[in-house]
Amino acid sequence: MRVNVTVNGVPRRADDVWEGESLLFVLRERLGLPGAKNACEQGECGSCTVYLDGVPVCACLVAAGQAEGREVRTVEGLADGGALDPVQEAFIEAGAVQCGFCTPGLVVAAHDLLARVPDPSDPEIREALAGNLCRCTGYEKILDAVRLAARRARS
């Protein structure tokens, strides 16, 4: 089937999509956007987190056909031209990236948190990132990065 979806502001079309395919597969394999990662394919790790109509979801659990006519924003769509999003900058500066596999999902989840809650408490950060696993166990640095991004945005 054909799926029409706006990705990072640009109307895109994917052809020959299998009806049982996930949005994640469409993004990565058909639209050439490998930012969202494929790890567990069962909603457990959050590395495939993207915005669907402004709401963070696991792209591996959205059927491709359910994205028809909708807006998707991936980690590739956070940077403004050459300038990284402040959340991305903070992840780099805080050393919150080790192998980097979990990073795109965490960046989207943190980006959403800070858009809703500009000055999150530690429990709020932990709760917002509870659906994102990091195998390199860089959680302390990840929390630092979110705190840093929040501080910068406020000042």
């Binding site: 009806e19 049982g20 996930s22 394919e41 069962q42 909603g43 696991c58 591996c60 659990l61 959205v62 059927a63 056909g65 359910q66």
Partner: peptide
């Protein structure tokens, strides 16, 4: 039927289910 897909998609991704149609309720 598929709503949020958080159960259905896991079954599809892991080949536990191959229905002949999905009915999207969203």
């Amino acid at each position: 039927p598929i709503a949020g897909g958080t159960d259905v998609m896991v079954e599809l991704n892991f080949d536990h289910r191959r229905p002949d149609a999905l009915l999207d309720l969203t």
